[in-house]
Design a protein around this nucleic acid. Structure first.
Lengths: 306, 306
DNA sequence: GGTGCTCACAAGGTAGGCTTGTGAGCATGT
DNA sequence: ACATGCTCACAAGCCTACCTTGTGAGCACC
């Protein structure tokens, strides 16, 4: 739960823009509000944090060290918010938009927003008008159907089954990794390998019912007798923290724990007889490459990441 | 810049809690507002997104597929917001708090919030009262001074100079990597190595003046004639996108591009004759281990990540 | 000394978000 | 059959945060 001292997104954005422009007025203009509004808003932020964030002078405003600090933290929040924005924008794009895509849930959840932000950034950098993209998130079968029927120009699906009649290109992989804390018995070098049966019989740290990760895991272990979870948490961050602290093994999306694995905070355990990997493909109808224009650019952008 | 359809942090948090509890009323209670307020807030979020996010029934509310999607995206935003919260909380902690620490800017910016969240999560999980932590962010010399004088119990500084008279422990490394897009000449396997002089003479993609990354880079190249930047951007995400698109080389914090390097979206280039690595140490006065209690726990937590 | 930039203060309007009060639908248990 | 307790929705009213417009003052440059 969020504390009472965290400014809202718009306020954070304002602070970041002030940091970049070096002036309250300029930042206000950029965000389409008046200088007074910006001034007041920064003031209430300072009340929240309890320290001055900007030093005001008669020829501009500079951030205080505290302000710089907050901006750095806010940057990360806004990066994530930008992906959220891209996702929402794609969901609500007017039907006069220029590119219709459909994506499976996993891709829509974890990969697409980043790609959309990337594509948009690239287009803006080239001086182009950003493409309006309409996204439909549904299951893989339905995505293939929609692409086949021409309802959408482009689809993103989970493999490994190559959809018949459609062209495709690999754009990434999605993998659940089984991880444990460094102090867990499974983390011993000699036995970083367990069977699917053992995994299923072990009480795990899991996400709540209904989460994508949980669903994938349960589907993969569906045939085996499963132990009750040791801990059920509501965010990936909590799961990572609990596992690192030794609560038990968990299956987590690979992208979410790359850092933890690199730093040794978490240790990956191979599971024999269990495939938690899925290949992610872009699919389209017609020629050997996606239709020219934004569709092709988006696929190229996505593929570049594998 | 953020679009007009992005809900504020509190609204996102509400949606996530609704997702977890399965009820508007329960979520409202957890956040300390009335059921009616929660209902109204979710309603305005739905207006923002343009689609229903929850299906209301007389015995609970479930998320629609769209709602699930938004929750996944919101999770990431809230993860970052939680680190911001930890940082702000440490900045404004009352002086009756239990642990005083000081940290260099780099550490305060990039590492500490995560550690604080981790420590807090661990304490909550153990049923302990979370430690109130007061943080001072300043330069390395001053941190050492404050630890020596007993102003703070614990310090975090950038090496490699081992501070005299103080005990220390390695808690991580901070490194600027020079990266290029996969199509850049430097990305050729044969020549993923350039000299510091060459780097300095090459127009780079950089962060704005005053950013930490920019400062480190300029200090490291201070003795060499530097070319003007090819592009100056205000967020790490923009820099990554521009470099990936081929705009030119950039120096970026290692933690920020780990994913990109793993996926091949960016390629690392070694720079000879230039050290952009710094070792990060926890420092304290007295015994061979940090003072018992939260200080020791925090160091242990941080050290676990290297 | 004018011009243009900076920010701050003040007054007034709007609206979003909150609360309280009320009611209706559904499930369960007496 | 009916009460209880859960769910959510609607309505009225309040409050506060935020916005705008208008004004003024300090600093720099021409």
């Amino acid at each position: 739960m969020l504390g009472p001292h965290v400014p809202e997104l718009r306020a954070l954005e304002l602070l970041v823009v002030v940091s970049r422009t070096g002036s309250l007025g300029a930042a206000a203009a950029e965000l389409g509000i008046t200088q007074q509004a910006a001034s007041s808003r920064v003031r209430t932020m300072e009340a929240l944090v309890g320290e001055p964030l900007v030093t005001r002078s008669k020829r501009g405003s500079e951030l205080t060290p505290t302000g710089e600090l907050v901006v750095q933290w806010a940057d990360r929040v806004l990066d994530a918010a930008q992906e959220l924005d891209a996702g929402i924008t794609a969901l609500r794009a007017d039907r006069r938009s220029h590119l219709d895509i459909a994506a499976s849930l996993t891709i829509a959840e974890h990969m697409l927003p980043g790609w959309l932000v990337g594509l948009r950034t690239e287009q803006v950098k080239r001086g182009q008008q950003p493409t309006e993209i309409t996204m439909t998130a549904t299951n893989t079968a339905r995505v293939v159907e929609m692409v086949g029927a021409g309802d959408v120009t482009l689809g993103f699906v989970e493999g490994p089954d190559a959809p018949r009649g459609l062209r495709h290109r690999l754009v990434g992989t999605d993998e659940l990794l089984v991880v444990v804390g460094p102090t867990h018995p499974w983390a011993q070098r000699s036995r970083r390998r367990v069977s699917a049966t053992t995994l299923a019989a072990t009480p795990l740290v899991v996400r709540e019912v209904g989460s994508g990760t949980r669903t994938v895991l349960e589907r993969a272990l569906a045939d085996l007798p499963m132990a009750a979870p040791v801990l059920e948490l509501s965010s990936t961050a909590s799961v990572r923290a609990a596992v690192a602290a030794g609560a038990g093994p968990a299956a987590v999306g690979a992208h979410a724990v790359r850092d933890d694995l690199a730093t040794g905070r978490l240790v990956q355990v191979a599971v024999t007889g269990l495939d938690l990997t899925r290949r992610l493909h872009a699919v389209w109808k017609g020629g050997p490459t996606p239709p020219e224009g934004p569709a092709r650019e988006l696929v190229a952008w996505a593929a570049r990441r594998h």
